[in-house]
Amino acid sequence: MVTTAPNTQSTRASLGADRAFLLLRTVFTIAPIAFGLDKFAELLTDWEQYLAPWINDLVPGSAHDAMLAVGVVEVVAGIAVALAPRYGAVLVAGWLAGIILNLVTMGEYYDVALRDFGLLIAALALAALAFDRHKAAA
């Protein structure tokens, strides 16, 4: 009987993908939940300053009410990543795209928009890894 050694390069790549998946899943679970809860606690910043006036005009209630709704969506997105990362990561990426649009149309906070673009790409990477893991398990 002839045995072959496992392909160590593919094993190493698989371990790296598993680590990347775990890191991204963890951060995209914790960060949205933490930021969402802070919309209620207001410990980190005055979140209302980041709301574009045209969006504030579209949503019912005050800017504060809008930020509370944003907080709920962010908590739900974090939970979605924890429970179903294939879909939760896409939800987070879409949410980040909306935040970027909001910030860019304000004509301010381009640095935050650029950071959020990086996060959007990372969320899409998580989705890709999650879909690959799902296919491999099937």
Rank of each mutant, 00 (worst) to 15 (best):
S10T: 13
S10P: 09
T11F: 11
T11R: 13
R12Y: 08
R12L: 10
S14P: 06
S14R: 11
L15S: 15
G16L: 14
A17T: 13
A17I: 13
A17L: 12
D18T: 15
D18H: 12
D18V: 05
D18R: 15
R19I: 14
R19C: 15
R19P: 04
A20K: 04
A20R: 08
F21I: 01
F21H: 06
L22R: 12
L22W: 11
L22V: 08
L22S: 10
L23N: 05
L23R: 07
L24H: 09
L24A: 04
L24N: 05
R25N: 12
R25E: 15
T26V: 04
T26D: 02
V27Y: 02
F28C: 05
T29Q: 06
I30C: 00
I30A: 05
I30M: 02
I30N: 00
A31H: 07
A31M: 07
A31V: 11
P32F: 05
I33E: 09
A34Q: 03
A34N: 04
A34K: 03
A34M: 14
A34R: 03
A34F: 12
F35W: 14
F35N: 04
F35V: 03
F35G: 05
G36F: 07
G36T: 05
L37C: 14
L37F: 10
L37E: 15
D38A: 15
D38I: 08
D38K: 13
D38V: 09
D38L: 10
K39M: 12
K39F: 15
F40R: 07
F40K: 06
F40D: 10
A41F: 14
A41V: 12
A41T: 13
E42F: 15
L43A: 10
T45Y: 15
D46I: 10
W47P: 09
Q49Y: 11
Y50G: 03
Y50V: 02
Y50D: 00
Y50E: 01
Y50A: 01
Y50Q: 02
Y50I: 02
Y50K: 01
L51W: 00
L51R: 00
L51V: 06
P53Q: 01
P53T: 00
P53Y: 01
P53L: 00
P53R: 00
P53V: 00
I55K: 02
I55M: 05
N56F: 06
N56Y: 06
D57W: 02
L58F: 05
L58A: 08
L58T: 04
L58K: 03
V59C: 02
V59R: 01
V59H: 04
V59W: 10
P60D: 06
G61K: 11
G61E: 14
S62E: 13
S62T: 10
S62R: 09
A63Q: 06
H64Y: 10
H64E: 10
D65L: 09
D65V: 14
A66Q: 11
A66N: 07
M67P: 08
L68W: 14
L68Y: 12
V70M: 06
V70D: 07
V70N: 08
G71H: 03
V72F: 08
V73Y: 01
V73F: 07
E74L: 13
E74K: 04
E74R: 04
E74G: 04
E74Y: 11
E74C: 06
V75R: 01
V75T: 02
V76L: 12
A77C: 12
A77G: 07
A77K: 01
G78A: 06
G78M: 05
G78F: 06
I79P: 11
I79R: 09
A80P: 13
A80W: 14
